[in-house]
Design a protein around this nucleic acid. Structure first.
Length: 818
RNA sequence: GCCGAAGUGGCGGAAUAGGUAGACGCGACAGUCUCAAAAACUGUUGGGGGGCAACUCCCGUGCUGGUUCGAGCCCGGCCUUCGGCACCA
């Protein structure tokens, strides 16, 4: 009698045993190659949903695979615990963010353990605990002292009714406050920035890492390098100190075509230059643009808006007087915050000029141009016209010639521009790591001495929405004395962007309890960089770019000696529900707990990997999960039934035994390749094929016991990373020593894995007309002859002329006829 | 709007150095077992036409145009959906 497969019973039993044996805890070991397998740590939003499992289960399978391949694998886990949702929950339910977060962690830890992943829990890291954020602050100070942190004004979303700063997420449709529906505006605040732009050039270089091309492309586009010229336009106003406006352009060859300049509405010169007649309109325009998001402003669909400020600048190339406008399609944060308007050769400028009736002067002639005004912007290269002594020059050469001329005359200089801007890390919120800075009336900005870290987040601060950072109202926090002169001083009350916490957590895992620094240099030297990082595609740019920047920055500060944090990256797709990414705020989360308690963790793990290619994600649909549960059940029955069947030593059917061994080795090859490429769906399909075949040969009793045993052991070992509990149980039940997870991964015999027979296709004019089973060793001559001798082929060829024959080895012959 | 992806049976998907479209699974239908049902097992399953039959022909990978002996795969132009767009993380 075969016992029933009772997944939950088995799973809990082995999870307890693995934990008791500390099977997954690892230490540095120089006798084996190391493998750092890292999954992006989850944010502590509440429960884990099916999307988390989609991230966690397949990455665990890969880590287990690497371990069976002989690597010393560390697979750590932790929690990203600071951030806005905790504060929102606190406000909504009157529970302290700390309590809310720790409750969530408690629950998520239980859920994560139910996955049966090989996490080394002894390395757990929680970013909101002082023992962690102490070092986040320490690293901030390092960056500050290294000249990589600075203060500058930057706009924040502001709700005038709630008197509070809003996150982008809290600004709902149409630019309104999510709480009170008041239109949101922008306000300038002094805030802290990191100089990520200093690393723009190095961040563009992906040559040291193996990342998916699409992610590299997205990062490259995000950084947005462009070579151009910063051109100076002359200003001549007695009451204005500045004597120039600088604009950035990648098209210096069009400078003779400038008919206006557009400044960002926030440009500092706007207030100084606006004439009294224009002031009212300009102020109205600026107020309006404060209500728009950057995305709205940059949309090329939207009709261009702007207004004349009454002032003029001089185009130094031809001494023309150029009117100055403001327009919201120009952003202060990009380039110099001002652009030159060349309507003939830039489509946005063209729209702007059309709208406001400004001249459109062609300076690059399109082919066959006869002097008429253009009907749309001509943005291709061409021949320069209306450009003084540059006339007749090809514009590509003109770019260089004008740049040379300008540099020579001091009208401008070549610069490399980046779309990337510096990283704003200040948040006017409670639930984050306090920025360790003190402001002293005498000494100015004073960093908190390292020995005084951590700057503790006061537990009793009032974090409800007010006009300022919540910490500002916590007197015991704000009031302090200057570390330098001991005079009364006050603390910085903004906290840090949570991306800061997640920019170095992977370093902390190497020595999570180290208390003399953020990490133990020796441990980091052994484990880092991360060998395989996996996480959601939504992090393609920001988190991954910030973490790269961070490592490069601390490398230059002498803290680490490698350049890139994540050697290999895999971005899995996103599991959506009701067509959108699962999120608490959207309310479309699917909880995995019921599936686990009903069908078992192994089934859920395998099902998630089976639904499609991991990088693709997709709509969550549980309609096939029973199929996975059925298959694991079949594996269970198959293995135990095989145990009870006394197969002979000699195979009754040599062919059947050979076929079985061939399939076994073919499957090892396929599974090994698929695991290496994260193609879990096809890996499982090939395991199903093997088990289907085993189910067919067992009742026939046509194979020998040795071939059978080889097949069953292989099936279990290949399945072990995916279904760790089921395979551990069956491994023991088939008389093998504990633990299957310490076994080496099977290897295949190339000869046994190779196909002996192939299906050979005969095409006529590219259409399949016949299929033949032939030995794999068939030669071209044999194949051609075989094809032409087929009766079916002969009837098709009747009365036609064979013009050519195309032969593809091991695949097909295509007869081209007329 | 900009950047990055994805579109294949009733459904999830398989097949890319351009060479058999639909592996594997779900669902559905039929059967075996059963007093019956469930479970399990076996078989069929892209659409359409022809043949008593073994079989055979045509169409078919979002739309559209092209390259090629041959296109799901390559190129041009669209459409739809998803992710990101710097304060959700």
């Amino acid at each position: 009698m075969i016992p029933r497969y009772t997944p939950r019973e088995i799973e809990l039993k082995w999870q307890e045993k693995w934990a008791a044996d500390r099977l997954h805890e690892v230490t540095e070991d120089n006798s084996r190659p190391k493998w750092y397998a890292l999954t992006m740590f989850p944010y502590t939003s509440g429960d884990l949903h099916i999307g988390h499992w989609y991230a966690m289960a397949p990455s665990d399978v890969h880590a287990r695979f690497k371990r069976m391949q002989g690597y010393n694998v560390v697979h750590p886990i932790g929690f990203d615990a600071f951030g806005l949702p905790a504060e929102n929950a606190a406000i909504k339910r009157g529970i302290h963010p700390f309590a809310w977060t720790m409750q969530n962690i408690e629950n998520m830890r239980r859920q994560l353990k139910s996955i049966g992943a090989c996490y080394d829990w002894s390395r757990e890291v929680i970013t909101c605990l002082p023992e962690y954020y102490r070092w986040t602050q320490w690293l901030f100070l390092k960056l500050y002292k290294g000249g990589l942190a600075y203060r500058a004004k930057a706009p924040v979303n502001w709700c005038p009714n709630c008197q509070t700063v809003l996150a982008n997420e809290q600004v709902v449709e149409g630019g309104k406050c999510e709480r009170c529906d008041t239109p949101v505006t922008k306000e300038d605040r002094e805030q802290w920035f990191f100089r990520i732009t200093r690393y723009a050039e190095e961040l563009l270089d992906h040559s040291r890492i193996e990342w998916p091309e699409r992610i590299e492309t997205m990062q490259k586009n995000w950084i947005g390098r462009s070579e151009g010229v910063e051109i100076s336009f002359g200003l001549d106003y007695r009451n204005v100190e500045e004597q120039e406006i600088r604009v950035f352009t990648t098209r210096p060859d069009t400078t003779f075509g400038v008919t206006f300049l557009v400044l960002a509405p926030e440009h500092p010169l706007v207030a100084k230059l606006t004439t009294p007649e224009c002031r009212a309109k300009v102020e109205e325009y600026i107020a309006n643009s404060k209500r728009q998001t950057e995305i709205e402003r940059l949309s090329t669909e939207k009709e261009k808006t702007g207004t004349f400020i009454g002032a003029y600048a001089t185009n130094k190339l031809n001494s023309e007087r150029i009117p100055l406008w403001i327009g919201d399609y120009v952003l202060l944060s990009y380039g110099t915050g001002a652009v030159m308007g060349v309507p003939a050769h830039d489509s946005r400028d063209f729209d702007f000029a059309k709208r406001f009736g400004m001249p459109i002067r062609t300076v690059i002639a399109p082919p066959d141009w006869s002097g008429q005004e253009l009907e749309e912007a001509f943005i291709e290269p061409g021949v320069m016209v209306n450009s003084g002594h540059f006339d007749g020059m090809p514009s590509e050469r003109g770019k260089e010639a004008i740049a040379d001329f300008m540099e020579d005359k001091g009208y401008g200089k070549r610069v490399v521009g980046y779309h990337l801007h510096d990283w704003l890390i200040s948040r006017q919120r409670y639930w984050g790591a306090p920025i360790p800075i003190i402001y002293c009336d005498v000494c100015g900005i004073v960093p908190v001495p390292e020995t005084n870290l951590p700057v503790l987040l006061p537990p009793d601060a009032d974090f409800r929405p007010t006009g300022e950072s919540p910490l500002k109202y916590c007197q015991s926090f704000v009031n302090t004395s200057c570390p330098r002169c001991k005079a009364p001083a006050h603390r910085e009350t903004d906290t840090m962007d949570t991306f800061m916490c997640s920019s170095w957590y992977f370093l902390r895992y190497a020595s999570p309890h180290y208390d003399e620094g953020p990490f133990d240099a020796e441990a980091v030297k052994y484990w880092l960089p991360v060998d395989q990082y996996t996480g959601g595609a939504e992090h393609a740019v920001m988190h991954l770019l910030y973490a790269r920047f961070f490592v490069k920055a601390i490398r230059d500060l002498g803290l680490v000696d490698f350049d890139e944090p994540f050697t290999r990256l895999f971005n899995q797709g996103i599991i959506v529900a009701q067509r959108h990414k699962m999120s608490k705020s959207r309310g479309n989360v699917v909880n995995p707990d019921t599936y686990v308690s009903e069908l078992g963790a192994d089934t859920v793990r395998a099902y998630l990997m089976f639904i499609g290619p991991w990088e693709q994600g997709g709509e969550w649909d549980d309609s096939g999960i029973n199929g996975m549960s059925r298959w694991l059940n079949r594996v269970w029955n198959l293995v135990l039934q095989g145990q009870e069947t006394a197969l002979p030593k000699e195979a009754p059917d040599q062919g059947a035994a050979k076929e079985l061994r061939h399939r076994t080795h073919k499957t090892i090859k396929k599974v090994t390749e698929d695991l290496g490429r994260f193609r879990y769906n096809t890996m499982l399909a090939s395991l199903m094929e093997l088990s289907n075949h085993l189910g067919k040969v067992l009742p026939e009793e046509s194979v020998d016991s040795l071939s059978w045993q080889e097949a069953i052991d292989t099936l279990l070992l290949l399945l072990a990373p995916t279904a760790p509990h089921l395979t551990e149980e069956l491994w023991t039940r088939t008389g093998h020593p504990y633990s299957i997870h310490r076994q080496p991964f099977p290897t295949w015999d190339e000869e046994l894995a190779a196909e002996e027979q192939i299906t050979f296709v005969i095409q006529i004019n590219g259409k399949v007309r016949d299929k033949l089973t032939v030995p794999a060793s068939i030669t071209e001559t044999e194949a051609r002859a075989l094809a032409l001798s087929q009766p079916r082929v002969k009837t098709f060829l009747e009365g036609k002329q064979l013009t050519s024959v195309i032969y593809v080895p091991q695949k097909l012959v295509n007869l081209v006829v007329q």
